[in-house]
Design a protein around this nucleic acid. Sequence first.
DNA 1: GTTGAGGTTGAACTATACTTTAAGGTGTAG
DNA 2: CTACACCTTAAAGTATAGTTCAACCTCAAC
Lengths: 135, 135
Amino acid sequence: MTEFTIGRLAKQTGLATETLRYYERRGLIAPHQRTASGYRLYRREAFQRLRFIRRAQALGFSLDEIAELLALSDDPDQSAAVVKQFTRAKIQDIESRIRDLERMKRGLAALESHCPGHGPTSECPILAALNAEDE
Amino acid sequence: MTEFTIGRLAKQTGLATETLRYYERRGLIAPHQRTASGYRLYRREAFQRLRFIRRAQALGFSLDEIAELLALSDDPDQSAAVVKQFTRAKIQDIESRIRDLERMKRGLAALESHCPGHGPTSECPILAALNAEDE
DNA sequence: GTTGAGGTTGAACTATACTTTAAGGTGTAG
DNA sequence: CTACACCTTAAAGTATAGTTCAACCTCAAC
């Protein structure tokens, strides 16, 4: 069997059929053809494409970005330089998000360490800090 | 002047009037009273409450969580223990997100270091890795 | 031939934090 | 008295990644 209905593809990839149709609307993956009655038929390449999507998602790329990556991958005239630049930008984006989260974590940890963990909220240093006049 | 219309409160806090109305719908802040014609009137406490919201947001709390924090702050019968637990849970949440991002970053950095940055996409190791058969 | 699993579509819903729009009332300065 | 800035509401739109729903069609088995 070299062709799969959407349900088989879904079962084997662990995705929901609705997700596959959603990816199609987003331009990420299309069935190779349709049956006379309109059923989607996918070939083995679909698994590869979905694996690409899954891996790229795990690396932090959005579906829009993945669509761009797939377009680059599909077009032999494109340069690897574009992909590298894309990757670098994503690394910087992630580094920036990590810095934001580290800052939040430090702020929370400082508050948490001052809280005795008992008594009324009126004496809670965490709430006091959020309410404080000074900056 | 001890009372402020929504526009004045917005200007002084840097928030949009729509955002203030949105916060009201979300149960975060309400005007002290209304004029006969329905205009919202806020008192000085509103600035404090909005500062609380801003700071809590900067620490990574969602508006729903901030609503809970404000409710805890408003209720003298609540224990500081709840706030401390809340803060701990948020720290763990943030640590988990940082770990996810670190993992992504390592994956991207590994790919990026293998890419020469020139040549056709067909020879791009980044795309190759995303397409690769093996796990 | 009917039942049940699985397929089709478009639209609406989820979560988060707003922003925008539409249609209309209010307050004040000239 | 008429601009014009500012206020009101409810509803819809934005971005992201789907999920759920309604109404209907198809395919294989019994």
